[in-house]
Design a binder for these strands. Structure first.
Lengths: 125, 125
DNA sequence: CAGGATCCCATCTGATACTG
DNA sequence: CAGTATCAGATGGGATCCTG
């Protein structure tokens, strides 16, 4: 996230991202990332899984159900076989992007300072 | 938080605050609230405890140690007897206030919509 | 493909008791 | 006053296996 100049390029979201260290969370470990992945267009379940790296099906499914319950996303079941389901942000869900961007802006400016402080603190002790 | 017009009035932060339902977290359950409590001036340990309602000494102490470790706050020990310790935000810690404000702004505009969606979803099921 | 069911583990939080 | 130590409970994330 920090260091990304685009708003929603899930291909660029991975565990090595420094903002993984940022003490910030929105509705569980993955919801923020899901919102960014869905920012530009609807995506399928497996598409989300692959874009987000390590998340298991169970956890992603739980995250998505929470988002649907809270009106942040809608679940589009095309009722095909094999199954085809897409998730899409609602207006409410999209409104969270600006909050996430505020965090990303903070990270770009200050996260390395936090990490340096943490490092010098642990080495000192 | 949501509904407060001031930035840092810890007296007005309590568990009944609707943003307690907001799926947003910064460094554990209490760190965001601590930052708001320290926004206007340094405060003593017990002063923080009382302003924040239910937090236990252990958890607040852990939160404050994390914040000091990450360079978000400094611990001022006056080495008196009885003990007197104050905590104060660093510039880095203060820089998080704008992030928190972004969340508060979101909450003021959208949180009730999320809560309504959640309610109608749980009653529907 | 899109999950659900189950189990396990780590972490977090709080309650309680104690201390310099 | 400002914590620490210890323990118990809840929660969350992940691994694995299974299914319509």
């Amino acid at each position: 996230m920090a260091g990304d100049e685009t708003t929603a390029r899930p291909e660029r979201i991975h565990p090595a991202c420094p903002s993984a260290a940022f003490p910030f969370q929105l509705g569980g470990k993955w919801m923020g990332m899901v919102i960014l992945c869905l920012a530009d267009r609807p995506r399928r379940f497996t598409e989300l899984r692959e874009a987000m790296g390590g998340v298991t099906a169970k956890v992603l499914s739980q995250t998505l159900r929470d988002m649907v319950r809270d009106g942040l996303a809608v679940r589009l079941d095309f009722e095909e076989n094999p199954p085809r389901v897409e998730y899409e942000l609602t207006a409410l869900g999209s409104s969270l992007i600006e909050v996430i961007d505020a965090v990303r802006a903070w990270s770009e400016r200050h996260l390395d300072e936090l990490l340096r402080a943490r490092e010098s603190s642990t080495t000192a002790v």
